[in-house]
Design a protein around this nucleic acid. Sequence first.
DNA 1: CACTAAACCTGGGAGC
DNA 2: TGCTCCCAGGTTTAGT
Length: 282
Amino acid sequence: MPELPEVETITRQLVHSVVGKRIINITARWPRSLTAAPQDLDDAIGARITRVERRGKLIIISTDSDSSVLIHLRMTGQLLLGVLEKPDQHERARIVLDDTSVLRFNDQRKFGRIQVISQEAAARDPFLVALGPEATDAAAVARALRRHAPRRRSPIKALLLDQHVIAGIGNIYADEILFTAGINPATEASALSIPRLRRLASACPEILNQAIDLRGSTLRDYRDLDGTSGTYLSVARVHGRKGQTCRRCSATIAYASVAGRGTYWCPSCQRRTRSALGNPFT
DNA sequence: CACTAAACCTGGGAGC
DNA sequence: TGCTCCCAGGTTTAGT
């Protein structure tokens, strides 16, 4: 599921709905979905939620105790806020709050994780610390691309997906961003000129902010805190549109595996640059 | 260090 | 209807 726009949507809803509430309990039906040392769990229970923020695709919940809660939804994770109710088939864990509301963590494929850790451990969490700049920050993305692209021979799409380089982009928005920048996803990263990298950087916030406005993309599983789907895919430029006509030039949208991921692009708007190395026209 | 493939999981859809 | 195969929004790890 979720890339930056989906996680941002949920985070904003959490800010409105759970900040100030107290955590009554945190439990798991599928043990691997919840990582929590006994001490950290003790600290979290009874604590009041003081802050909810997003970093890349990670949700960070801070409390007035020594504990923090990190949530990564991975592929099919959902956070749903409701009243006490019977867990449904895919509920893996839940956080019970002091007003009888329940934050349910549903996750069909069981890849997602809720981590309860000390604030100190959260601050030096390896995944968090290694993240690149936020994909919505065009200037920072431009710097990151300039730094990493020259020594990467892999497709530019792989670079966009690398969370160490830029945080928050996943498979759907990588395709959308590359279309917007007019760059073929299979282009060797090191072959791109500085102006084209700059164009790519500015396409990131352009696409992601539009997707946030539309509350993200629902391919199948993604839902926001209320259970509502996102509507970005109804305006998607290329992703999921194999065989359909390009909205810009009417060519047929292509589909193939690039960087090991299903990839959509317009063969006309996103032409392959000719042999990369040393070509001043790329 | 850069890159690829496999692993972690379940279930929907396509094709036969 | 039922079976098999392929695919999926992400990240980590093992291996080249």
